[in-house]
Design a protein around this nucleic acid. Sequence first.
DNA 1: CTGAAAGCGCTTACAG
DNA 2: CTGAAAGCGCTTACAG
Lengths: 340, 340
Amino acid sequence: MKKVDIKEVARKAGVSIATVSRAFNDSSRVKAPTKEKIQKISKELNYIPNPIARSLSKKSSETIGVVLPDLFGEFFMDIIHGIDEEAYKHNWFVILSSSHSKRNILETLVEFMGSGRVDGVILMAPQIDERINEIIKKSKRPVVLINAGDSVDINCGANFKINNFEGAYNITEHLIKTHNYKKIGFVSGPKDNYDALERAKGYYKAMHKNGLTVDESLVVPGNFLLESGYAGLKKLLNNKIVPDAVVMANDMMAVGAYQAAKELGYKIPDDIAVVGFDDIYLSQFLAPRLTTVHVPIQDLGRKAVLQLLEITMNKKKNHKPYIETLPTNLIIGGSCGCGR
Amino acid sequence: MKKVDIKEVARKAGVSIATVSRAFNDSSRVKAPTKEKIQKISKELNYIPNPIARSLSKKSSETIGVVLPDLFGEFFMDIIHGIDEEAYKHNWFVILSSSHSKRNILETLVEFMGSGRVDGVILMAPQIDERINEIIKKSKRPVVLINAGDSVDINCGANFKINNFEGAYNITEHLIKTHNYKKIGFVSGPKDNYDALERAKGYYKAMHKNGLTVDESLVVPGNFLLESGYAGLKKLLNNKIVPDAVVMANDMMAVGAYQAAKELGYKIPDDIAVVGFDDIYLSQFLAPRLTTVHVPIQDLGRKAVLQLLEITMNKKKNHKPYIETLPTNLIIGGSCGCGR
DNA sequence: CTGAAAGCGCTTACAG
DNA sequence: CTGAAAGCGCTTACAG
């Protein structure tokens, strides 16, 4: 397959390369018959403008860089899915990069930002630190954040979050108001994780608003992994004050809690109610089905792309970052005691 | 942040841009002190060579295009994970593209192949058709296939598969030899899916090798989705010959089978044994734990990258495609009757 | 509506 | 070991 470039097409069509280029870009300024001839010949020759050359020339690549903290689990799959779908719809490309360490995120960001390789990046960083913030600030390319803390709002193009607070508040209140539990435990997420902190706040707030005091022995640390949920529930069940219900800061830990309950011979929800957060795929297959909080993850990805494209198109600089917090909704299963 | 290019660095370092370029590439030919000076200045100026310009010039982008049939489920997550990890290790980028239709795969392939955007692509296409084959044949860029049928071996750079046949054979034989089941049903995958067909073959072969005839009413069609496993098992349980064990062509369908069994009041494995294929994350949480076939999906992604890089480096053309079939291994749970 | 030419930011023979 | 210059394949003022 001989390489075919714009010159070749121009020659065969008897026009200049400028005209060929225009036929492919700002079509309005090329006479219809000329354009048709160029299109016909391009098809025959199987010509596609070289996107690299075009990028170099236009200084834009129609490519989004996506930087994720990790690449595993359905949470990230859903984000990627949403991003890919929306990007494809608009004919943009997606360059992916995960990271297994902070350093890596930084490197990737620098590489992305400094080059013409991407026109903007979507960054998901539940624990953003100052160095990342610096890079975002210096960058000429827009950055759209997903699930980042408040500290970075100033520098980014947009920040999409999930209303973790509201979700945790609602599910806790459900346990209180609908089921009349009083001793409600909480297994938290990582201390430095923004989502986790918001969820904890929601739990506390719901307790206080409803006149319940939180005995600190009922709050145990977790890290979003299954094992810590397992350990967390065991600890609570051996506590001097044994809770009648437990809010797990995410579903994976709830899965661990199910295992712990089973091992210790506690029935869910009769002996102990358990609820989670995230509505992962697995949660519907637990017996009883887990009561949890659904988060619109794919939407997060889709919205991030749309916002990024808009910023890129408008090229307004220094506009205020757009901030949107997506609502969650309660998924009622049997693990809270409903349908008993 | 003022843009800093190679000229700027060259000027500040008092050398030509050629020397700066060399300092960043084939270092051996630049005198050590010169190189150090250039590195120091680059650091100060925050200079990173523009990868787009470099790509255009070198006609290679150090980027892999990944084309997947879909973007959801842990299967794809694992593939992506493996690819990303290996690519990152070698400082390559990954451009992602899924597709929701055949046309889309074709378009993406054409776009990828024709441009300088990627140096090669990893294509996962369980049902490759002739048009895709044509594109691969014409392409100058290497293509590494994952889980594709045999028909395409000739044109690609490499083809990595999972030994679906062996996996299905082994798990079926396990049911026969260890548990002495005689009436073993099978719920198949999509008719046009290469993996699915191989799994069916493995099932049949194991039956025949062990002197069991397959009553065709014991083989029902499925499509790899949960619902078809649900319907499939129901059908089998209402069959005139009711099986004592069933091989589901994948785990998702096995999950559906669990639901059907529960609904009809059949206990697994006492009333009916059920086994799956894939070893999805969920399978370990089923009660009893699903007996299934583990497939090394991340490895598939990793190996595909390594092979692609090697082909790209060596640039040998017309070498025979490299074909590797990765082994599977049996995961024993309680659903086959083990540990009863 | 169209063309000649400069330019995007690099790499790499070629010459020294 | 280093530089001047051509070239990668496009886009886009500028001029007509």
